[in-house]
Design a protein around this nucleic acid. Structure first.
Lengths: 173, 173
DNA sequence: ACTAACATGTAATCTGTTACATGATTGA
DNA sequence: TCAATCATGTAACAGATTACATGTTAGT
């Protein structure tokens, strides 16, 4: 996820680490804040793999900025990651949203394939949420907190499925 | 998150590891599947800390089940975790949902405090989602994938805030 | 005969969190 | 003067992923 986000934002424009951190926080609605101890080692790793290069620039304040630019290899890696999402990236909303944020870089047929995988996941007879081990229907759930969860989950799932179906049709075949 | 889920489900009833895995998957709408390499070491850790005890039972098929029971210490730990959620657990929807699933074990005033923290997070002037570094309004977002993200995020956020306000009022003062 | 579900674990490796470490600029 | 924002990094530790390892039972 971190890697997709870094590569994705760098494809849009060269950025330095601090800026990446802010954009990732915004992208996820501040639900995920990258820590320095995750970000800077990740940048270093990706530099060593040849996906990004850095050049120094004097900072606005404080330490000099390490401006990061995507290499052709990095771009290929981004596309590869977007084309082949893991099960986690398909099933987890936050992870999937990161994919969605950079899906524009794929071809329509590839975009369609990713959206279809997400739709199939959501459509799967997964009857989520349960109390005593068995799936629970909204009306049967007595706990108001779980009722709330269920209600919100059902409503967002419905909305997302409708949107996915529409997009898949537009991207069309 | 894993620990809250394990302790929470075990407060409902003694369970073995495999069953815990299934319940956690259901709880999260299959968005999060605990791997064996995460679950069993976690169980061992929690046993060593005195939060759970195990007793063997012959398996229905396969290996003998290690049925896990919550100790009084484990129960205290669960309550402690529910009362003092981290920023991540407040800000991340999936994490927050796990809290919600076991919030019934807290006192109304404590429940209220947790819901209020979540509401404050959602209400914060965070203007989430962005394209070029600045917050973006729905109408200004050209990328259909990001538009979709934004739309769905706005709608679920609205729904959740309304629900939180209602619950907070019901829980009183 | 094979696959899925049942059931538990370990080991290598990777990644993340948290805390430490440093230091400049801007605004209250 | 103090806090916030800017800006980058390292180190100790905890935790997760993936693959390995083993074996049964029920259904097709």
């Amino acid at each position: 996820m971190l890697e997709v986000a870094i590569l994705g934002f760098l494809k849009e424009a060269p950025l330095h680490g601090y800026e990446l951190k802010q954009r990732i926080a915004m992208l996820t609605g501040h639900a995920y804040r990258v820590s320095d101890g995750a970000l800077y080692p990740a940048i270093l790793r990706m530099e060593q793999r040849g996906w990004i290069v850095r050049h120094q620039e004097r900072g606005e304040a404080a330490a000099p900025r390490q401006v990061l630019t995507l290499t052709p290899d990095g771009e290929q890696e981004l596309l590869r990651l977007l084309r082949n999402p893991s099960e986690l990236e398909i099933s987890n909303s936050s992870q999937f949203n990161v994919l969605l944020a950079f899906l524009k870089y794929l071809q329509p047929a590839e975009q369609r394939a990713v959206l279809k995988r997400r739709l199939e996941f959501l459509e799967g007879a997964r009857s989520f949420f349960q109390a005593g081990g068995k799936p629970v229907k909204l009306v049967e759930e007595a706990d108001p907190f779980r009722r709330g969860m269920l209600q919100m989950a059902i409503s967002s799932s419905r909305k997302e499925k409708a949107w996915l179906r529409e997009m898949i049709e537009v991207l069309g075949e």
